[in-house]
Nucleic acid binder design. Structure first.
Length: 947
RNA sequence: GCUGGAGUGGUGGAAUGGUAUACACGUGCGACUCAAAAUCGCAUGCCGCAAGGCUUGAGGGUUCAAGUCCCUCCUCCAGCACCA
């Protein structure tokens, strides 16, 4: 009889043994095994592990352990991201030093992490506040400074009054509040330490194609970076000044009827411009109100447009030569593009709204295609001169014409049908045969079966006509085609035809089919909505895509990209961070602190209460140190770094955490990088994940790292919600304390429960106390199976075991721990009903080991093993033992389920039908009609079609 | 508005186009018990006494067969949003 399942005792015992033996330490790279670098985001030492930490670390531990048991050498490190504001705030509140608070927390949390029972590679740990760590953070900064990747910029910063420091754009939420404190962010103009992440914008987007991340994360980064391809075009003002505008639609240049400058535009303070502006007072007044408006107000797209003209100043449209007015309006943003736009009211909603309000002319230069609802003035199709039409629909990815693609497919089908008819098939037979062709199937849903046959008949009776005409048979009424006359076959003619007739053709289809056709075209062909040019001199009739480059070339503009991404502001006016290793000469010039003086230690003689002035400014020690090293009159930089800098390279330090000569040796990186699997929270998508990719690329360019992309694969986990379905919070009183749960049911149970809630990626689940009790019961039954060990077991159990082994392995790799656990539960339920052999039980214990490391270790030793179960391999399923002798399959009659039969999985159709005859109920139903057709999918279904 | 993703029992969720609702929770009934807890057994999508019928947000389509593929619409979640 097994002992009672005392999870507390078992877990304590094995944790001590594991720690003692160092079973989870990685040590040197063992090249006899493939490597697997599994990373979780290092935690901030806030003082206590919460349930979110468990979800973030304990569940990925299943993955890491599975990899290890599957023969990989796994690096699964953990550390602490220990600089940051909360330490300071807590220290102020409790009158402590932030360092003491942080180190106490780290010691406590490390114990908590050990109680989790993960296979953390503690021998590789590090933390960002360790001088051996931040020495290299500083050194990298100095390298970047010398390459101008880190620079002292001047500009508007996001000031958080709650944190008393500037924060990065990424740390400002969409509602304009600080992601940390929740306070409303203010704009302040001040010098700032910046990282030139914008220089990497293209690579940060393009290299996303090389990583195995979920599409939604990649897409979120792409959107955040926000690349727009377009052109910069210069307009000359009547004052002789030049305004550069950025536009994504240079093809509409002839339609630019005015310019708009952002209120922040530097030209507005130039004396030439001011001298020529006759309504200067109005302009200044507008600029003043516009720039003082709060950000939210200004970004409200729904509000009415405001602006003011620069009287007395005109600009020359470089394409048309027309003199056009210049406005200042706050719908143009100073911080994006060039802060100036050419306004094309005919083809831009915002410009249209502004022009309408200010009575400005609207000049149409593009004839839009049918779905181009965004262009306010939509011409009727009849206005279009047929002979100037080129094409209006374009496939973005292939550059081919959308309708032609589609048209061409139909044309191919037509040809096949014609072939069939020529070979003696009736039109009906030919049409039906072709419809069953796999390649055609996707397309034919738009046209009913009847239409196909009608069209095929038409083809048969009009053999002399060309294929284009036949194709039309599939789109419209046959009579209409006759009116078209002979249709020329050249490509351009097809374009013209499609263009001219599309509307007519669509009109012939039923409304439902019309929609389907249009949807299909949009979806398959990625229609841009562009058109062809009119009112544009020599560009008239040109495709708008082609016209973009040609027009830019004509006016001496430059094709270029603009990004939404701003440079990363990394200076913080707070204490508990990495001091920026810069000193200023007596003349105010910035110099790096050379390597021999690193780490540039954070002084301790500081009153760190936030005042808005950097606390380090008050450090006598830092001042003294600077003068001693660099000379009298030299002053230190007093800002510290954003903690996202610390976390931009921690995964490199893990590899070589004791290296005194560099951040991490290239040899160590070659052994372990890139990170094979990175688990983490969704909140880091456009912050940590973006910053660290940038940091890695910048290091790569300096030859300091071996990879330009750090993370091969990424999975985001969701959040664990309170039992009431809300986010856990003290104020709601719905916080679940993991320590209490562990004390109650054990770490293995908590871990499996978290994994059992549902698929791991991208999902959040409410805590359920009943649910976790169920998991505990499961483990108790697992333990209790010891009493069911016997000399033999039912074949059914052996079969189920091997199915389970296979399923658990594949499910883990797909982060579907829930179904893996479910399969093991099914197995245990089955085993409990009879006996299980020791060998089978051991196989089961080994597949459960990644999920319940303590319990399985305990059972393993009780079964007489002296080695750890965690040094065993993950079993390989013997699929020959997993084959079912018989299966129960459903029997459908005319597609409706009417019963089932029990047959061999590989039974023939005849055997299946015999089984049906043995079933009186089914047999009775079968006799009610004549059997016309039998569809039999072995092991799946038998469908009998009766007359 | 744009871009992604998701809608399945009372709940979390499961289903290579092939018997929808696995597994777990909850609930009900029963066993054990003086009693309760724990544990075990049975039942549990909906309507219906039953036979049977209905059911994966709504509607249509393709298919012998649709939760799954296609189209339209609705709802929810996430990211972006006066980004030229």
């Amino acid at each position: 009889m097994h002992k009672k399942f005392d999870s507390g005792e078992i877990e304590k015992k094995w944790q001590a043994i594991w720690k003692e033996s160092g079973i989870y330490n990685v040590g040197e790279r063992d090249r006899s095994k493939p490597k697997s670098y599994v990373l979780v985001e290092w935690p901030y030492p806030s003082g206590n592990l919460h349930i979110g930490h468990w979800y973030a670390f304990a569940v990925p531990d299943i993955y890491a352990r599975y990899k290890r048991m599957s023969g990989h050498q796994v690096l699964y490190p953990i550390g602490f991201d220990a600089f940051g504001l909360p330490a300071e705030n807590a220290a102020i509140k409790r009158n402590l030093n932030p360092k003491d608070w942080t180190y106490e927390n780290m010691a406590f949390m490390r114990e908590q992490l050990e109680r989790m029972g993960n296979m953390f590679s503690w021998d590789k740990t590090t933390n960002s506040t360790d001088q051996d760590y931040y020495k290299w953070t500083q050194w990298m900064f100095t390298q970047f400074f010398e390459k101008s990747i880190a620079y002292r910029g001047k500009g508007i910063v996001n000031w958080c009054p709650g944190c008393n420091t500037a924060v990065a754009n990424e740390q400002v939420l969409t509602d304009g509040t600080c992601e940390r404190s929740g306070d409303v962010i203010e704009k302040r103009e001040m010098p700032q330490w910046m990282m030139k992440i914008t220089d990497y914008a293209d690579r940060l987007i393009d290299d996303l194609d090389t990583v195995a991340w979920p599409d939604h994360i990649k897409e979120a980064q792409r959107q955040w970076i926000g690349r727009s391809k377009g052109a910069k075009i210069n307009f000359t003002l009547s004052t002789g000044d030049v305004v550069t505008v950025f536009t994504t639609r240079p093809d509409t240049l002839f339609g630019a009827t005015y310019l708009v400058l952002a209120p922040e535009h530097p030209l507005l303070s130039k004396s030439e411009v001011r001298g020529e502006t006759s309504n200067l007072a109005d302009v200044d007044a507008y600029v003043k109100t516009a720039t003082q408006k709060d950000e939210q107000d200004r970004l409200d797209a729904t509000k009415e447009k405001t602006g003011v003209v620069l009287s007395g100043i005109t600009a020359t449209n470089p394409a048309s030569g027309e003199q056009i007015p210049v406005y200042v309006a706050d719908y143009v943003l100073g911080g994006y593009g060039t802060g100036a736009i050419m306004a094309v009211p005919a083809h831009d909603e915002r410009d249209y709204a502004f022009a309408t309000k200010f009575g400005l002319p609207i000049k149409q230069v593009i004839v839009p295609c049918a779905d181009d609802s965004k262009n306010p003035p939509r011409p009727e199709f009849k206005e279009v001169k047929r002979d100037t039409v080129i094409i209006h629909l374009r496939d973005k990815s292939t550059g081919k014409f959308a309708l032609l693609n589609w048209h061409g497919t139909l044309e191919g089908i037509t040809t096949a049908i014609m072939g069939g008819i020529e070979n003696g098939q009736t039109p009906e037979e030919a049409a039906l045969a072709e419809m069953n062709e796999e390649a055609a199937l996707n397309r034919v849903t738009i046209v009913s079966k009847l239409k196909w046959i009608t069209a095929a008949k038409y083809c048969a009776s009009h053999k002399q006509q060309n294929r284009c005409a036949h194709t039309y048979a599939f789109l419209g009424e046959v009579e209409n085609l006759n009116e078209q006359g002979v249709i020329p076959e050249s490509e351009s003619a097809i374009h013209t035809l499609v263009w001219v007739d599309e509307k007519e053709v669509l009109a012939k289809l039923t409304p439902d089919h019309q929609k389907q056709v249009w949807q299909m075209l949009q979806k398959e062909s990625a229609i841009t909505g562009d058109g062809y040019l009119i009112n544009s001199d020599e560009f008239d009739g040109m495709d708008s895509e082609e016209a973009k480059e040609k027009i830019v070339a004509k006016v001496g503009g430059e094709m270029t990209s603009t990004f939404r991404l701003r440079d990363w502001s990394i200076g913080r006016q707070r204490y508990w961070g990495v001091p920026i290793p810069i000193v200023y000469s007596p003349t105010g010039e910035a110099h790096i602190v050379p390597k021999e003086h690193l780490p540039w230690v954070l002084p301790e003689d500081v009153d760190f209460k936030p005042t808005g002035v950097a606390p380090l400014a008050k450090s006598e020690a830092l001042k003294k140190r600077t003068e001693e090293i660099f000379g009298s009159g030299w002053t230190p930089e007093v800002e510290t770094m954003d903690t996202f800098v610390d976390s931009s390279w921690y995964f490199l330090r893990y590899l070589d955490n004791k290296n005194e000569g560099g951040l991490a040796s290239l040899e160590a990186q070659k052994e372990w990088m890139p990170i094979d699997m990175y688990f983490g929270g969704a909140e880091h998508t456009t912050m940590h994940l973006l910053y660290s990719r940038f940091w890695q690329k910048a290091l790569f360019d300096l030859g300091l790292v071996t990879e330009s992309e750090p993370y091969k694969q990424r999975v985001n986990h969701g959040m664990i919600l309170g039992p009431d379905g809300n986010k856990m919070s003290k104020s709601k009183g719905n916080v679940v304390d993991p320590d209490a749960q562990v004390a109650l049911v054990g770490a293995d149970t908590v871990k499996i429960y978290l994994a059992f809630m549902g698929p791991y990626a991208d999902s959040s689940y409410p805590w359920d106390f009943g649910g976790i009790a169920g998991v505990r019961r499961f483990l108790e039954r697992v333990y209790g199976l010891v009493d069911h060990i016997g000399d033999s077991e039912p074949t059914e159990l052996t079969r189920q075991l091997h199915k389970t082994i296979a399923k658990v392995g594949t499910d883990i790799l797909e982060f579907k721990y829930n179904t893996a656990i479910s399969a093991m539960m099914i197995l245990v339920n089955l085993a409990e009903k009879g006996s299980i052999t020791k060998a089978s039980y051991e196989l089961f214990v080994r597949i459960l080991a990644p999920f319940a490391p303590h319990l399985t270790e305990e059972i393993w030793t009780q079964l007489g093993h002296t080695c750890s179960v965690h040094t065993e391999t993950f079993p390989v399923a013997d699929m020959t033992l997993a084959i079912d002798e018989t299966v129960v399959i459903g029997v459908q009659i005319n597609g409706k389920l009417r019963g089932n039969i029990t047959i061999a999985p590989d039974a023939t159709e005849g055997e299946a039908l015999n089984a049906v005859q043995d079933n009186p109920l089914l047999q009775e139903k079968l006799l009610s009609g004549t059997l016309k057709k039998v569809i039999y999918v072995p092991g799946r279904i038998l469908n009998l079609l009766l007359q």
